[in-house]
Simulated assay, not measured.
Amino acid sequence: MARKRRGRPVHGWLILDKPTGVTSAHAVARAKRTLDAEKAGHAGTLDPGATGLLALAFGEATKTVPFIADAHKSYRFTVRWGMSTATDDAEGAPLATSDLRPDRAAIVAALPEFTGDILQVPPQISAVKVDGERAYALARAGEILELAPRPLHVGRLALTDMPDADSATFEMSCGKGGYVRSIARDLGARLGCHGHVVALRRLATGPFNLDGAVSWEDLTAPDLAERILPLESALAGVPELCCPPALAVRILNGNAMALPGAGLADGETAWASRDGVPLAVGIWRGGALHPSRVFVLGDNR
């Protein structure tokens, strides 16, 4: 007999402004407990020492997590010059030091090398898998890892402030799999002064930003459910196809359906709705939508 799920059906997204010192998993658990939700997750881990946007998904919205996890993200971060560390942030043991401090002109001149399509070596403490194991687990066990460089698209990297000679603040937008700590490490190496991250804040992820984000304290508020965004918030920019009511059952059963495609090309992602309620998301091919994820919401149950 299948085990009955605990909690109630809650569907949608909650945007948290995560404080420092909190893990992403702890944030999910706190919100899930307040909402008494059956199912919850998040779209993209934010390190405990980092702050800012953490997108929490509930119920059927968890099926749209890949759209947020794969989306471009924006960050603001501060690099401290003069030292590299084992973790590329302030938590790690020092590896090398330097008395050299770069001036504004040198920093700005180096930034084009870190924008566009680049190759980036992840930090030792990262979620990258090595022979089936997470890099952070191996590194914390004392292994020195040779991680392969990975392709990354950096849309923007700009120097925004120099509080003092020892530090500089940047803003960056990048694609999936980008590590701010690696940017700080490699930029410090390029400038010949070493560097590591001392502050990191995520500003945006895909269609979500910090406008209207809930605080850590809000996660225990009795009106938290009123702050939840609809499931389709994660599908902003993805074409919507309106499904006639008579065809909704076929879509919900996972059958490919010919729908008005509005000029969609084969291989393009789209989602189907009925009277504004999301039914499924899938791939447009051969004049039909082929569902890959079906949503069970409201009167679709």
Rank of each mutant, 00 (worst) to 15 (best):
R101N: 10
A109M: 04
L145A: 11
N209M: 03
S126Y: 09
A139R: 09
V108Q: 11
T205E: 14
P163L: 03
A148Y: 11
E226Y: 01
V108I: 09
V214S: 11
L203C: 05
A221K: 04
S173H: 02
V238Y: 08
D166S: 14
L231A: 00
V154F: 13
D186A: 08
E217I: 02
E217M: 03
L159S: 05
E232N: 04
V180A: 15
L203S: 00
C174K: 13
L157E: 00
Q124I: 05
Q120F: 11
A105K: 12
A168M: 09
C193S: 09
G237P: 03
K129V: 12
T169R: 12
A236L: 07
A168E: 12
A236H: 08
M172F: 04
E171Y: 04
L100V: 04
S126Q: 09
A127P: 09
G237T: 03
F114P: 06
L147Y: 13
G142L: 10
A110D: 08
E232D: 12
L203P: 00
G132K: 00
R181K: 12
D223P: 02
I144D: 15
A139H: 06
L159M: 13
I125N: 10
A137I: 07
I107Y: 00
A204L: 06
G142H: 09
A105I: 01
H153T: 15
G237L: 05
A110Q: 10
A110S: 10
L231T: 00
D99W: 01
S215C: 04
K176H: 15
